[in-house]
Nucleic acid binder design. Structure first.
Length: 534
RNA sequence: GCCCUCGUAGCUCAGUGGAUAGAGCGUCGGUUUCCUAAACCGUGCGUCGCAGGUUCAAUUCCUGCCGAGGGCGCCA
């Protein structure tokens, strides 16, 4: 808002100075250093070349034009450094921010319509139903769900989906492993070995089909544990069910009709190299069995019924799979841009300083359930969302377990708890917060107060950036900074103390409410709770 | 060999085409008559992997190299 007003003023001034058209890259930024003002423009630097003037001189001319008709809230302008024009604004611009936060409230502040109601289908986790989900999978759960929340807040219609790979070799091996354990026989070659196989085999009714029962057991486990970390899906898609409808054959026929298929060495191949893949890929093996890819292609085509844009969240160990799927979808006439793959780097778990290997088949794994049971869903989710999905992540379970100080989620939740504590104490003392319209925010001028307002002002663009860059961890960073600013404010700016003037007290009560809204929005986007007491 | 991601403080990681690169942890020291000390303040901490290039400006973009992880299956 203020940003647009300042930018418009800059553009108008540039036009008056004969800079036309305005080159790319002219913009407003927030200076890294306080003394450089609230906003700054690089216009003189970026336009110097086309204007054929030196940046300082052009900057001075720009400044003079701006000073002749200053935009709202502008207190002082200065020319600085190589040619920046810095805007020093009156605190009133931040008071407007607070009014905005409060009037929009939790439902609307930081909401955007960049999604414009477009539908998107996000598939994530999709762990094979051959056992419990390991703690590495928790990263995709936290990431996928938070990305979905962020995209929803940006106006996308989001469909969350889990693909159940419940047919094929791995399912059979899993069933055979359960059967062997039940019958006291050794596990089959390449079978599953974990302790859970023994435990589950003991639960299994004598007359159960081990494969079917095992898959249902795995799914129940996955559903429960994901729900425990506040991850809920709209659709669980069964590969077996889709295969029974004949979808793979239909895809095969369509690809054949489009001339994208050939037979060689007894197998059936997709001409994926026509669409940028390294080589052609088999869809039907020489033994007549489908490869993993064929039903998966049918599945992806099916997903378009539940979203115009597909997002797959895959671990780095599956990234080679993306080009062939994209090629297959293109071969079926889909636009490559509608298929997006996000590659997440893998998680390393540490306990007692030792790395824990996450292998389901070898049975040396840490389940998400173990992690959630040990530290709770909030700590786990926050930890998963602390870092960029592009970075490999090391989670030290001992550090997570330590409640004090080392857990950043408590730092944020504690800020929220303090705000609620103030509200409780105010009620006890009979202090009421008057309606915003009757409260003057002008007393909010302390650096601690302004810092909080500056941070609140960043939320809308942070949400949009997190959405556009598929980077929900930016919300984590933002909410940590807001909490940090609040703790400093809390320390230095008493609200209920008897020596605080009433008008300042009222303004601070509203400031605390604004922060509460910001924390609530941010934590909700992360899928982390905001307890009122700790 | 080819492809993807990463390389920033002692550790774990943010961050950015701009003016003196940040946080937490860890070190050392300090802060509480009234809203929760799960907090705050101070202190120290850097060839932003290396070398070129583009640019008024590069830690950020491009290229090459080095290092780490992952992938290159008629497995999923």
């Amino acid at each position: 808002m203020i940003r647009q007003q300042l930018l418009d003023a800059v553009r108008t001034a540039l036009a008056d100075l004969g800079v036309d058209p305005v080159p790319e890259g002219v913009g407003l930024e927030r200076p890294a250093r306080r003394e450089h003002g609230d906003w700054s423009t690089n216009a003189a630097l970026a336009c110097a070349k086309v204007a054929k003037r030196n940046p300082r001189e052009l900057g001075q001319a720009l400044l003079d034009h701006l000073a002749a008709a200053p935009p709202p809230h502008v207190e002082r302008l200065e020319l600085a450094g190589p040619g920046f024009v810095n805007f020093h604004l009156a605190p009133t611009w931040l008071h407007d921010v607070l009014t905005d936060v409060i009037t929009q409230g939790e439902p609307s502040y930081g909401r955007s319509d960049i999604g414009a109601g477009r539908s998107v289908n996000i598939e994530f986790v999709s762990a094979n139903p051959t056992g419990p989900i390991h703690a590495g999978g928790g990263r995709w759960g936290a990431y996928g769900d938070s990305l979905a929340r962020v995209m929803e807040r940006c106006g996308y219609k989001v469909h969350r989906e889990f693909y159940v790979n419940d047919r094929g070799v791995q399912s059979r091996l899993f069933g055979a492993s359960l059967a062997a354990a039940r019958d006291g026989e050794p596990a089959p070659d390449n079978g599953y070995l974990g302790q859970y196989i023994t435990d589950w085999a003991a639960e299994m009714p004598a007359d159960a089909d081990p494969t079917a029962w095992g898959i249902q057991r795995s799914l129940r486990d996955a559903r429960d544990v994901l729900a425990a970390m506040h991850v809920e899906y709209d659709t669980w898609s069964s590969e077996a069910a889709l295969t029974e409808t004949g979808a793979p054959e239909a895809v095969l026929a369509e690809l054949r009709a489009r001339g994208q298929i050939y037979e060689a060495d007894g197998a059936t191949w997709l001409r994926s190299s026509n669409f940028g893949d390294d080589k052609d890929r088999p869809l039907v093996k020489s033994d007549g069995e489908y490869t993993y890819a064929l039903p998966d292609i049918a599945y992806h085509l099916d997903k378009y019924r539940r979203g115009d844009h597909l997002i797959d969240i895959l671990g780095a160990d599956h990234h080679g799979y993306a080009p062939r799927m994209r090629a297959a979808l293109q071969a079926m006439g889909r636009d490559a841009d509608t298929y997006e793959v996000i590659i997440g780097q893998n998680v390393k778990l540490l306990r007692d300083g030792q790395e824990l290997k996450l292998s389901k088949r070898a049975g040396t794994m840490v389940e998400i359930r173990d992690l959630i049971d040990e530290v709770g869903p909030d700590v786990a989710r926050f930890a998963y969302l602390l870092q960029s999905i592009d970075s490999g992540q090391t989670i030290d379970i001992d550090v997570l377990r330590a409640q004090a100080a080392e857990n950043p989620v408590y730092y944020v939740q504690y800020a929220n708890a303090r705000i609620h504590s103030i509200a409780r104490e105010a009620a006890t003392r009979g202090i009421e917060r008057r309606p915003l319209a009757q409260v003057d925010l002008a007393p909010l001028v302390a650096e601690r107060e302004l810092e909080l307002l500056r941070q609140l002002e960043l939320l809308p663009e942070t949400v949009e950036l997190a959405c556009a860059e598929r980077a929900p961890h930016k919300i984590t960073t933002w909410v940590r900074e807001l909490a940090g600013a609040f703790h400093g404010f809390y320390r230095d700016c008493p609200i209920l103390r008897s020596d605080v003037p009433p008008d300042l007290q009222q303004a601070r009560l509203w400031l605390a409410e604004g922060v509460r809204i910001g924390l609530a929005v941010g934590l909700d986007l992360l899928g982390v709770s905001a307890p009122e007491q700790m």
